[in-house]
């Protein structure tokens, strides 16, 4: 039974997918021992919503599918598309394979599903919230980490259930939409993570997104300031002028980003630029950093 859903978002190019993998690793390494069950650690599912898989190439996986496959100890990985979420849900509701086939292999309903507004968002969020709503096939995970859409698309995803509930007030569709919306607003269930780097545009987007999510959904997101060089002016001694100028620009950007986040009263977790191109090394290093940062906050 899924107790927590972690959504990871942010502007394109800030490292959302990498941080999703890091978060999954961190949660798996630091989840409390579950004494009621025989397993030692919580089970984590890392799910990406990318149409073209990022994790398959990045993590060097043989394959990735809707059906979760094992990645690291205690962590499974999968790629979700709205179509497959809907299909699984329909099969669960309709029970009969033949009826389901008739429904899904019918060209009219195929195109209808594709174009009906809001249906894809509901399918994804319906799957994510299926455990607490006790509606849909059971999911044998304790926590979900969802490598979600970039900022703008992410807001429309979150707004979809309420919009649908308003457009269709009666019937099962309205009922489900309201249920999904309720769980998205549940502080214990929904956890938001916004990733940014120390540059003007991503930081501005992060602040706006943070405020929007707080105002509209009452949720406080965890913000990660990623790829920090942590250079200081002391590092610039004895360098030639051109290099000094470039590095000063980086130092200024990092200062500015921290200042802007503080001014907006947003707490953030600092993650350093890791000098490695090796994904597993990167992930383990950053998971350690995440642990250090969490410990410092507590």
């Amino acid at each position: 039974m899924v107790k927590k859903a972690h959504f990871v978002t942010g502007k394109g190019g800030v490292g959302k997918s990498l941080i999703s993998a890091v978060l999954a690793r961190y949660l798996s390494q630091n989840s409390p021992l579950d004494t009621n069950r025989k397993q030692e650690k919580e089970k984590i599912l890392l799910a990406e919503l990318n149409e073209q898989s990022f994790f398959k190439d990045f993590l060097g996986l043989k394959r990735i599918s809707y059906k979760p496959l094992p990645w690291l100890e205690g962590i499974d990985i999968s790629q979700w598309s709205p179509q497959e979420c809907l299909r699984e849900y329909a099969l669960y509701l309709l029970k009969l394979e033949s009826l389901y086939k008739l429904f899904f292999e019918n060209p009219v309903s195929k195109s209808l599903i594709q174009v009906a507004p809001g249906l894809e968002e509901l399918a994804l969020l319906g799957k994510i919230t299926s455990s607490p709503r006790s509606h849909g096939p059971p999911m044998n995970y304790d926590q979900l980490v969802i490598d979600s859409f970039a900022t703008g698309h992410f807001i429309s995803l979150f707004r979809a259930p309420a919009a649908m509930a308003e457009a269709v007030q009666f019937g099962p569709m309205g009922e489900q939409s309201r249920g999904i919306d309720r769980w998205l607003r549940d502080k214990d269930f929904t956890h938001l993570h916004i990733v940014t780097i120390a540059e003007e545009l991503p930081v501005t987007e992060t602040i706006e997104l943070y405020k929007t999510l707080k105002k509209e959904f009452g949720l406080i997101a965890t913000v990660y300031l990623n790829k920090l060089t942590r250079l200081t002016s002391a590092d610039l001694k004895n360098l030639n002028p051109e290099l000094t100028e470039s590095l000063e620009y980086i130092i200024d950007n990092e200062k500015e980003a921290k200042k802007n986040l503080k001014d907006a009263q947003i707490e953030y977790i600092e993650l350093p630029l890791v000098n490695s191109l090796e994904p597993s090394e990167l992930i383990d290093h950053l998971a350690q950093e995440m642990k250090k940062a969490e410990a410092a906050i507590d």
Partner: peptide
Amino acid sequence: KALESLTGSQF
């Protein structure tokens, strides 16, 4: 019928 059971008649 399948569609209706999924979405409701208002939709």
